[in-house]
């Protein structure tokens, strides 16, 4: 059993009105402070390399896609949001995606695809805005997913850093 000792109120506190005025003074003070709200569309969210936005496909500087359509991200995806059809190519890597679709109605932005990817080909970008008037419009194909490597450089560096730490610590 817990016995709670209530604070003995002084006469002034029992009169209630002075305390009411004290409370009103505090709220009046708050009124003239700067609001902590962000006006979203005009003043967008600050993103960093840690921001886990929508996944995007990395395109090399010679405008070839890094993805080899191995299907690991497709398997890793817990929401079954990724669909890949591969095809052959004359490049060194021999395979590239013919169709790469991410259904953003299903995607939960977990970043498992990024972790699963052996080629640093799918990366979580800092793009967060996701709105459309149709369901079909939210199934992104290759054309909408491709991003040049320069746009995702920060994220790739960050992931490498994290992975390095992980590798060294698990060596024991």
């Amino acid at each position: 059993m817990v016995i709670i000792k209530r604070k003995q109120l002084t006469w002034m506190e029992k009169a209630y009105l002075p305390e009411v005025i004290r409370g009103l003074r505090i709220t009046l003070g708050k009124m003239f402070q700067k609001p902590s709200t962000r006006q979203y569309p005009e003043d967008p969210l600050i993103t960093t390399e840690v921001t886990r936005g929508q996944p995007r496909l990395v395109v090399n500087e010679d405008s070839t896609i890094r993805c080899v359509s191995c299907g690991l991200c497709e398997i890793a995806c817990p929401a079954y949001a990724i669909t890949i059809d591969g095809q052959e190519t004359d490049r060194m890597i021999e395979r590239e995606p013919e169709k790469f679709e991410i259904d953003f109605l299903r995607c939960i932005l977990c970043g498992f695809c990024e972790e699963a990817c052996p080629k640093e080909a799918i990366m979580m970008s800092d793009e967060l805005e996701l709105a459309d008037t149709s369901r079909q419009g939210l199934i992104y194909g290759l054309d909408k997913l491709k991003r040049p490597v320069s746009a995702l450089k920060k994220r790739i560096a960050y992931i490498n850093k994290i992975n390095d730490r992980w590798r060294t610590s698990s060596s024991t």
Binding site: T27, K30, P35, T37
Partner: peptide, 10 residues
Amino acid sequence: RVSAWIQHRI
């Protein structure tokens, strides 16, 4: 508006 100002909102 007043409730917003008192609660640090806009």
